[in-house]
């Protein structure tokens, strides 16, 4: 029988806490930036201009159909060599994760927008509103209700995806866990704790999102 030894990890509480902070901060930035990227890509997809549609399509497919780990390594190692763009590991992680998440958000947002009855857009246009006004005042406020469950789901995936940035030596929760594991020779305990921390953050967050969604639905 394996004998669990959690006590030894108490010495590592601060670095695990630091790692958690980095993970949460990273997640927040890539969700906000990713949503922005996704919104722009989705609007470009729905644009009347062929160039916008094509560009957005290329972006979405490129990021959606490439493994995140490959993208992370490529952005960090290849970009400086090819284009002379030097980034810190943290910046590279934020950029890659935002673009990657954005490509998935884009499809969710586009789906939410086109699921709305065309008559809503026409009613806005008939009043004399410009297309962007119609989008902001009429379409998006309604579409957001339909998008919020899949957006939430994607954001949870984004949260967990941040663990991959440890390959770039960004000191996130998993990276700090790895440090503790090699120090203590107690990987089982360390990774169990790391998993529990992820769980402790995400479960209340999903519960909160569920309630927000419920409220949103009731408001109509």
């Amino acid at each position: 029988m394996y004998k669990w030894e959690f006590g030894i990890l108490w010495n590592y509480r601060w670095i695990l806490l630091d790692g958690t902070k980095i993970t949460v901060l990273l997640t927040l930035s890539v969700i906000v930036l990713g949503l922005l990227v996704g919104l722009i890509a989705a609007l470009a997809q729905l644009s009347n201009f062929r160039t916008f549609r094509l560009g957005s399509w290329a972006f979405i497919e490129l990021f959606r159909c490439t493994p995140l780990l490959v993208l992370l390594l490529w952005f960090y190692y290849a970009l400086p060599i090819l284009l002379g763009i030097e980034m810190t590991a943290y910046t590279a992680a934020v950029v890659t994760l935002s673009l990657y998440g954005g490509s998935f958000y884009a499809e969710i947002i586009r789906g939410g927008i086109i699921s709305l009855d065309r008559g809503q857009t026409e009613a806005g246009l008939a009043l004399g509103m410009r297309p962007l006004h119609v989008m902001r005042r009429i379409v998006l406020p309604q579409a957001i209700k339909r998008m919020s469950p899949p957006l939430m789901n994607q954001s949870i995936i984004q949260f967990k995806n941040t663990s991959l940035v440890s390959v770039l030596a960004v000191p996130d929760l998993l990276y700090q866990g790895q440090v503790a594991a090699t120090d203590t020779y107690r990987p089982l305990e360390v990774y169990t704790i790391v998993a529990i921390i992820y769980l402790l953050i995400l479960v209340p967050m999903t519960a909160f999102a569920k309630r927000a969604e419920h409220k949103l639905n009731k408001s109509n």
Binding site: Q120, A123, A126, L127, G128, N220
Partner: peptide, 29 residues
């Protein structure tokens, strides 16, 4: 848009904005 603002259109399926009150619907334009 400015041309359309001078003609009023009423649709078969109303197309009211469901996320706004009746008053807000009329005020929107």
């Amino acid at each position: 848009a400015s041309f359309r603002s001078r003609t009023g259109m009423v649709f078969q399926h109303f197309n009211l904005f469901p996320h706004m009150t009746v008053l807000q619907n009329v005020m929107e334009g």
